[in-house]
Amino acid sequence: MRKGLKRAGFALVCAALFAAAGVAGFMATMAVEVAEPYRYLKVDDASLYTVDHDLESDGRDTTRYDLYLPAEADESGDYSLVFYIHGGGFTGGDKADGDLWCPYFAAKGMVAVSANYTLSQGDGVANLNTMYAELVRTANVAVEECARRGYRVTEMATTGGSAGGCLALLVAYRDPGALPVPVRFVFEQTGPASFEPDLWGQTEDAGRAAFVSMMTGRSFEAQDVGTEAYQAAIDEISPAALVDDGAVPTLMAYGPKDKVVPVALKYLLFDALDAHGVPHDYIEFPHSGHGLLGDPDRTQEFYDKMDEYIATYFENGADA
């Protein structure tokens, strides 16, 4: 009896060790794999830039931003801003993701911002229109803050991944006049290019109306589907529908194994950019899903192209 108990206890200890090692292995691998694509962006010399966290945009905690600045302000110089927007399905994520991207730009002599926006609770209160408005406001507030600190920003680019990629496209395309400085280009990864509900698996009018209501914050019922107002509401949050002749050059990356964002959406954006003659580049990550984690060579290609966009479209230039 006692021997049996001892054996059971030992088996439990072994099971606990197995589970603990499993969790540790999972977490360690996750940390390594997720950080891997950002190795190229790593800045070894932290003295090249400064970062101020949690600056206020509109007084709310959900819209704070982090500001990355080159170490020393050149009062006579003009600066370019890279405006980073985090992903997370519009319901999660945090501006802390910007720590993987923004130091790279600041160390090269640009200003960078990583902005939060009020996340959706699925009830339509926080939606793509409110997120867009908050981000535009933050861009304006951040540029003013930069000026106060001696960094005169004269141009900007938007960037982000997933939901952040979509919002980066919206901020760049929707109303450039609402931004404090001209947008020169946008570069994004795996951002949804359209919110046509059928492309998101909605097959009934009630589902279509609920989906569009949730994403836009406007109230639609099944009988509204197909109306002008309904379509206009979809279009104003769909980057592909916002592309016109004046749209800015666009760098995009997508993975065909993406199971989060329907893979067909990107073609709407490609077609719109083609139709309006907007310069754009698409880098496909053929072995990757939504995280773009399966193609290190394409990751490098994306960063190289990003540097090319910076050199080509930013008028202020960047340090080598």
């Binding site: 072994c14 603990a20 292995g25």
Partner: peptide, 30 residues
């Protein structure tokens, strides 16, 4: 005692391998 330690070490190693494999499967699915 020594046999117990060996069994425990094997459990730790097997757990770690399973964790790494599970993470890769998860990331590929994502």
């Amino acid at each position: 005692m020594r046999r117990k330690l060996v069994v425990m070490a094997v459990c730790v190693a097997a757990g770690a391998v399973c964790g790494i494999l599970a993470c890769n499967v998860f990331l590929n699915a994502f």
